[in-house]
Amino acid sequence: MDYLYHILIIALIYSIFAQSLNLELGFTGLYNFGHIAFFGIGAYASALLSLSGVPIPVAALIAIGLAGIAGAFLALPTLRLSGDYFGIATLVFAEMVHLLFLNERDITRGPMGLPNIPRPDWIGTGVTSLPLLLAVVFFAAAVTFILLRIITNSPFGRSLKVIREDEFVAQALGKNTFLIKTKAIVTGSAFAGLAGVLWAHYITYISPSDFTLQETILVLLCIVLGGKGTHWGPVIGAFSIIFFAEFIRFIPIPSEYTRFVAPLQGMIYGFILVIMMLKRPQGLISESRGQRTTNA
């Protein structure tokens, strides 16, 4: 039962993370492959602040804010790049942030990571902590879902979609596309930071290896599989991937084969990405539009 809580919490956190990327990638057409950096910034910021005594809610808010600011910092120079170059620039950004996590040992303790990240007192680490945590994370995920739904159905959200389909048209309509895109990235980064905060305080131990290209691929997979540009798509994708990842552990595998599990999983993830691009780039849940051209 504990284990079920664990999987649900992880899946919910990832669904927040995936939805936040979906705002940028699915709705605005911004292929931000550096999104993990904001997850990491949220996690490290909240962890470090709360470890030095700042009350957790305050630390969390500051961390989310920092993640959003970092998003702006990334957006400003990179938004003028074309699609695939933008993807690469953001990817490289994430790698640089990862290097910083790894090497600024004075602050982050480098590869040794930050253990003993505190949880709110009323949750603690005891027997009742998991259901309470699940409630908190579920609440956060629900709020995220609702907020993002409001955002994407608003006029702002509509302009995001116009930008995704044809930026020139958006500009012709008088929109300041640069500002709108920046806002999208800042919002997405802030939500990613939220996911990071939840992660840090749930797992209570973070290290740079939690925030690498691998996680980027994983969240990309959630969106690609689930369906970008939809509300439920990234959620379904996140749950599918996380459940699949954890489900494997239940299969009784003789110990001499356990070392094959992780690589096989990795191969399957890679394979799914490739197949989705080849056969169904719009994902499992596709945006229902009359005559939508399939731009992956």
Binding site: G83, V274, M277, A296
Partner: peptide
């Protein structure tokens, strides 16, 4: 003939597949 992003993502997937093949 597809969107350049599709190929980029596909190549990311391929790279993940091949890299884990080595690990396997």
């Amino acid at each position: 003939q597809s969107n350049p992003i599709s190929i980029l993502i596909a190549s990311i997937g391929l790279s993940y597949l091949l890299r884990n093949g080595i690990r396997l």
